[in-house]
Structure formats: C-alpha cells, structure tokens
Simulated scan of single mutants.
Amino acid sequence: MDFTLVNLLSLLVGALFLANGYYLVKEGREALALFVMSLFVGAGLMFVAVYPNFFEMLATLLGLEWKARAILVVSNLVLFVIITYLINRIGKLYDRLSRLNEEVSLLKSELEELDE
C-alpha cells in the first residue's frame, strides 16, 4: 500500500469532520442531518485515506479511463449534496429569522401600547 502525506492529511481531515459533527450534535446546536453529512464526508475521507486504490476500481466500474475522473465525479456529487443541504438550511434559517422579526415587532408594538 502506498501511504503518503496526502493520505495522512485526508485521514486527519476525515477525523476532524467526524469529531466536529459529533460535537455539534452533542452540544445540541445542530440537527441530526449535519451529523449524518459530517459522518458521510468524514468516513469517506478516512476510507479513501486507508484504501487509496479505491478510485482506480471505481473508475473501472464506471467505465472511466482515468482515476482522476472518478475522483472528480465523486467529489462533484458530494459537493452537490453539501450545497443542496446548505441552501435548504439557509432557506429554513431565513424563514425563522422572518418569524422572529415579526414576533419582535409585535412585542415592540405591545410594549409601546402599554407605555401609553
């Protein structure tokens, strides 16, 4: 097995993804979906770090000529999933912020009425 510095960095970044996802869920600051995404990305990075020849097999399975194309296909798919999740999350946060602004405005108007 050809273990290089890139494999070590990939293993480290994968472990950091897993630890960060676990920490956010443990602290109750994020949803379970973020942990699942962190688990998927972190475990994927760690798997590729331990089995660097995986993309050669995947390239053959997909009928691609080069390993680099298989890496690009997989990374683009993962980025698509992450971006879709983040756009969805931003939309939900925007809705929550709008509702919060409405509630603050109502409370402010009630306080002004009570002061008069």
Rank of each mutant, 00 (worst) to 15 (best):
F3P: 15
T4D: 14
T4N: 14
V6L: 11
V6M: 15
N7Y: 06
L8M: 13
L8C: 09
L9R: 03
L9Y: 06
V13A: 01
V13L: 01
F17G: 01
F17S: 01
L18S: 09
A19G: 03
N20E: 09
G21F: 09
Y23V: 13
L24A: 14
V25S: 15
V25A: 12
K26C: 04
K26R: 14
R29V: 13
R29P: 13
E30L: 10
A31S: 15
L32R: 08
A33F: 01
L34Y: 11
M37P: 06
M37N: 14
M37I: 15
A43N: 04
G44S: 06
G44F: 02
L45Y: 00
F47V: 01
V48S: 12
V50R: 13
V50E: 14
Y51T: 05
P52T: 10
F55P: 05
F55N: 03
F55W: 03
E56P: 00
L58Y: 03
L58V: 10
A59S: 03
T60A: 04
L61M: 13
L64R: 01
W66P: 02
A68K: 00
I71Q: 08
L72K: 00
V73Q: 03
V78A: 02
F80R: 02
I83E: 05
I83Q: 04
I83M: 07
T84R: 14
N88A: 15
G91P: 07
K92C: 09
L93M: 08
L93S: 10
Y94I: 07
D95T: 07
S98M: 09
R99G: 15
S105N: 13
K108A: 04
L111P: 06
E112C: 00
E112A: 05
L114A: 08
